[in-house]
């Protein structure tokens, strides 16, 4: 008899890092399918390139720096997938690949790897691509079957699409963000499997719609346009870069929504979700400082 002596607890929750990441990938599949449906196979190619680049990038980085290779935790795959879904269909392959590598090596790897980055890798990579090669990131191909090569996104020309079009996604935009139905399916899946809480997405979308309304935008169109829903469900909820305490998460989500409304109204970019979430990420450590749980048997804010 060879008895193990590892200490208690002797049971573990079935939700491992890998299971959680797999849940996110499954939740992203409807968006991938919808993207292919809207933009054709060019969309699939973009998503695949960025995913493969992110996974290979992580593999090579971890091997080069003599770390244990942990590609099997699927976090790099999630990053690459989300980045790909944030790009326009048919973006140059090197753009998608470079973005994937930047995300896992510069934004994540240099800080130590999974859990150590302070900002969402996929979004930071997207911001980098937008800053470096703006023409590719603002060139939106029209949905397959529409008689035009490029078209104006709903954010650039509000009112040119019906709510149903916005919801189903036969509109120009980034691959993953166009079909709101697919995003909602993913959201429900993530909440049901307890991968994420409903808190951040709902608070962020509601806050953006409300603030947008105050600033003169149609709240329904605000919620259904651009990458707001996609960002709120899949990127603002990134464990690593959102606050860890519940009150902190509320402030974070409401703040991100507010920034989205402000950016859409005032900045030169028609879309502000990327920057709103990145800025919220940066404030997350401060929010975690402000909102700490009271320790049992201690007065609020009392130190040992």
């Amino acid at each position: 008899m060879n008895l193990h002596l590892s200490p208690a607890p002797h049971v573990h929750s079935p939700q491992s890092t890998r299971v959680l990441m797999l849940n996110v990938i499954v939740a992203l599949l409807p968006c991938v399918i919808a993207g292919v449906w809207v933009f054709g196979f060019a969309a699939l190619a973009t998503v695949l390139v960025s995913t493969v680049a992110a996974v290979l990038g992580e593999l090579v980085w971890q091997a080069l720096t003599k770390q244990k290779v942990r590609v099997d935790d699927l976090s790099a795959a999630v990053t690459g997938l989300i980045l790909g879904l944030n790009l326009p269909a048919g973006a140059p392959w090197w753009l998608a690949a470079l973005g994937g590598v930047f995300a896992v090596v510069i934004v994540k790897g240099l800080f130590g790897g999974l859990g150590d980055n302070f900002i969402n890798p996929a979004l930071a990579a997207r911001a980098m691509l937008l800053a470096s090669w703006p023409k590719y990131l603002t060139h939106w191909p029209a949905p397959a079957g529409v008689d035009a090569v490029t078209a104006a996104t709903p954010l650039a020309s509000p009112g040119s699409y019906t709510t149903a079009q916005l919801f189903l996604g036969r509109i120009p935009g980034a691959i993953g963000e166009v079909c709101k139905l697919a995003i909602l399916i993913g959201f429900v899946y993530l909440v049901v499997t307890k991968t994420i809480s409903w808190r951040i997405p709902v608070a962020m979308v509601a806050s953006a719609a409300l603030c947008g309304w105050v600033l003169g935008a149609n709240p329904v169109a605000t919620a259904l346009s651009g990458g707001l829903l996609f960002g709120a469900v899949f990127m603002a909820t990134d464990y690593v870069t959102c606050p860890m305490t519940v009150p902190g998460q509320w402030v974070y989500a409401v703040g991100a929504g507010l920034l989205v409304a402000i950016f859409r109204r005032f900045s030169v970019y028609p879309e502000g979700v990327t920057y709103a979430i990145l800025l919220a990420n940066i404030s997350a450590p401060l929010l975690d400082r402000c909102f700490r749980r009271r320790v049992y048997g201690h007065e609020k804010g009392e130190k040992a």
């Binding site: 959680l20 976090s75 790897g113 999974l114 859990g115 606050p243 860890m244 305490t245 749980r293």
Partner: peptide
């Protein structure tokens, strides 16, 4: 494996520790 900062431990702690 590395901490992914999901915050589940903070929610689970009956004492309110981090």
């Amino acid at each position: 494996s590395p901490c992914i900062r999901c915050g589940r431990c903070i929610d689970a702690c009956p004492i309110g520790l981090n």
